[in-house]
């Protein structure tokens, strides 16, 4: 008996097919968001509610006489960082869910580049992060926030916070791939995210914190990202926080992207 060698269809073996495959899978993640708007609550309503709560509840006390209007230029760049950092954990939860539901089995049985589903997931989430950045900035503008340091710098600030999210999401991609359940990923994420964002200069000046917390704030990347955002959006020293932030971004990608890709290869 001879063995028949069946020719793979020609249309499937184009160069750069993986780019289109990744874009298709990113599109999938966007469609999922559109068909499932309640899943967007964490990047839409949550930032608005946080903004309103912190501004109106703490604004008067923290800005010492400036009222909530005086607190807004300080709060908004910080809240932007918190919102986006929180949004990154959704990436890991989503990936974990896709594996659990067998969606990845379908992808893996198709003749597509192995890495496309992972790139698609990250790209699709970039859209989610952008959305949350936009929602928060628009709410800020409605309440009277302005880019005091020029529109160009303000927009650069939005871009940098997006890039930071894309660097940080590799932590959650990795955890999403190595942990058993989506709930587990979420649990860890909250455990890390709350101390990381509240133990920072987002809501109050770092100088008001006790010494041990100040020591933590000094090394936390959140602090430098927040300083960068404030400098770009409202003015202030930029160079040092920007360089440290960029270094953190490179570091996060250098450590967690390879870990995530290794975990991904192991599971696929």
């Amino acid at each position: 008996m001879s063995t028949a060698t069946l020719e793979p269809a020609a249309h499937r073996s184009r160069p750069f097919a993986w780019v289109q495959q990744s874009l298709t899978l990113a599109w999938r993640n966007i469609v999922r968001i559109r068909q499932n708007p309640e899943a967007l609550a964490d990047v839409t309503f949550q930032p608005i509610i946080f903004l309103a709560l912190f501004l109106f509840v703490f604004g008067g006390a923290i800005s010492q006489g400036g009222g909530w209007r005086g607190y807004l230029p300080q709060l908004l760049p910080g809240l932007l960082v918190q919102t986006v950092v929180f949004a990154t954990m959704g990436t890991g939860v989503g990936l974990n869910d896709d594996f659990a539901k067998g969606v990845f089995d379908r992808f893996r049985s198709l003749p597509i580049a192995r890495i496309s589903p992972l790139i698609g997931a990250v790209l699709g989430d970039a859209v989610r992060y952008s959305l949350s950045i936009t929602v928060l900035m628009v709410s800020g503008f409605v309440l009277g926030f302005r880019f005091d340091n020029g529109v160009g710098n303000g927009l650069l600030g939005m871009l940098i916070v997006l890039l930071f999210a894309l660097s940080m999401c590799w932590i959650w991609v990795w955890l999403g791939l190595v942990m058993k359940t989506a709930q587990g990923v979420q649990g860890i994420a909250f455990l890390v995210m709350f101390p990381l964002t509240f133990g920072s200069n987002i809501f109050v000046p770092a100088s008001t914190l006790p010494d041990f917390l100040q020591a933590f704030v000094k090394v936390s990347p959140i602090t430098y990202l927040v300083d960068t955002e404030r400098a770009l959006m409202s003015g202030g020293a930029l160079q040092k926080p920007l360089l440290i932030t960029l270094a953190w971004m490179v570091g996060l990608v250098a450590v967690f992207a390879p870990l995530a890709i290794r975990a991904y290869r192991r599971r696929t």
């Binding site: 495959q21 999938r28 068909q35 499932n36 899943a39 969606v103 992808f107």
Partner: peptide, 22 residues
Amino acid sequence: YASVDEDMSGRRNLIMIGRLLG
């Protein structure tokens, strides 16, 4: 066990696979 994407319509599931196949 069915490996469909539950968060998309049936049509979009099929379109997605078609697009992935080129």
